[in-house]
Write a protein that binds this DNA or RNA. Structure first.
Lengths: 210, 210
DNA sequence: CACGAAACTAAACACTGTTCAATTAAAAAA
DNA sequence: TTTTTTAATTGAACAGTGTTTAGTTTCGTG
């Protein structure tokens, strides 16, 4: 019994996928592999193999391994944003209901996609290596959701100070999530880190009213 | 010109280091290499080479790569704890001065030892792989410092609730630090994450008084 | 002094990421 | 249509990994 989906092919140019399709195929396959194995055991060779191509194709299409990993992680960001929006959908404004839904969805996505979520932060790149604008956009979209919800809660458009606070709030929630999922020392005995994070967020926001 | 410090040796048993010395030597060399290269480009082979031994010795001494990395990271934890104590030394109680010093020292250690600090969280191990009690102790010592300072500030011994809060506070500060040092999306434009973290800590602590 | 156990190494294995010449097919030009 | 050019794809090579194991040397012990 052998794998029919990956037929050995000859050298040379192929045309069974358009450039766009190929990009998408490689990203999806890489994303699935990342979910399965996690960042430490991820292999570009294996991802290409599963897509029915050879490693070289990844370098052709993305230019570098870093760019490929960035693209794989961008998919995680897009799925994450969609998850948050879905969780917020239908929650009425007023009180802290939407903020609560936001924090809980932030956590639940990370928990249900632990390997991919952690890979976002596992992948380090030099400060000066250029990042494709598509990848920047995927990251900014997530922050924008929090900006929107916090400024809605505050009842005023987000000024510079608010935006700064939002990034601090994100870091707070991120910290709880990262400590929890990476199994680090601090939160080993914490059974409900999401509730802790939420409590801290509400305390900090309440403190801003003064 | 060749390296005198690593003289090629024969096979077989040696006795130029006691077991303790050898352990320490390998950990120090590994720690230095981690500081130089970071987790992603760390190599146990290279660490052993620099110590004048072969890879196999690491497996002999530590049993597994995971155990070795744990030991290397434990050294970081011990240095970190010492750094915090040094920063706290001489700061008088009263007000938030000691808490402020604590948070700032937390950050400055991470900043000055970025690769080693990040390695602590980069190294993932299965939940069930056993951790040497020496390594557990190094991690608990850090948490204990924060427990001590927070309960001193509160003016009461730390009960279960306080200990839970402390772990949440650590996660908050960790989040700011991690976002900053890993160069992730949110804090790229934040010039002073330590001050943001500190502000959040004080807001949260103030909220507990009610 | 002999001998068993402990420490240490070299080598093998199966993998990586990265680069590049060779190959094939598509697209463009004639 | 035929030819030529250009683009996509691969296999193979290279220098590294982590991990295991057989073999070598030396230390302690009887």
């Amino acid at each position: 019994m052998f794998n029919l989906s990956v037929i050995p092919r000859h050298m040379g140019r192929r045309s069974d996928h358009t450039p766009q399709e190929l990009r998408q195929l490689l990203v999806r396959e890489g994303h699935a592999l990342m979910a399965e194995r996690g960042f430490a055991r991820f292999s570009a060779r294996e991802a290409a193999r599963r897509a029915g191509y050879s490693v070289g194709t990844i370098y052709n299409v993305f230019g570098s391994l870093d760019a490929y990993l960035l693209a794989v992680n961008s998919r995680t960001f897009r799925l994450w944003s969609a998850w948050l929006e879905a969780a917020l959908d239908g929650v009425p404004p007023g009180g802290t209901a939407r903020l609560e839904a936001l924090v809980r969805a932030y956590f639940s996505f990370a928990a249900e996609n632990a390997n991919c979520w952690l890979a976002i932060y596992d992948h380090r790149i030099d400060r000066e290596t250029p990042i494709a604008k598509e990848d920047v956009a995927a990251r900014e979209a997530l922050t924008a959701i929090v900006d929107r919800e916090v400024s809605a809660w505050m009842g005023k458009p987000a000024d510079a100070e608010t935006r700064r606070l939002v990034r601090s709030l994100i870091s707070m929630v991120h910290g709880h999530c990262a400590m929890w999922l990476s199994g680090s020392f601090a939160l080993l005995q914490e059974s409900d880190p999401a509730s802790q994070a939420l409590a801290r967020v509400l305390e900090v926001l309440a403190a801003q009213s003064d």
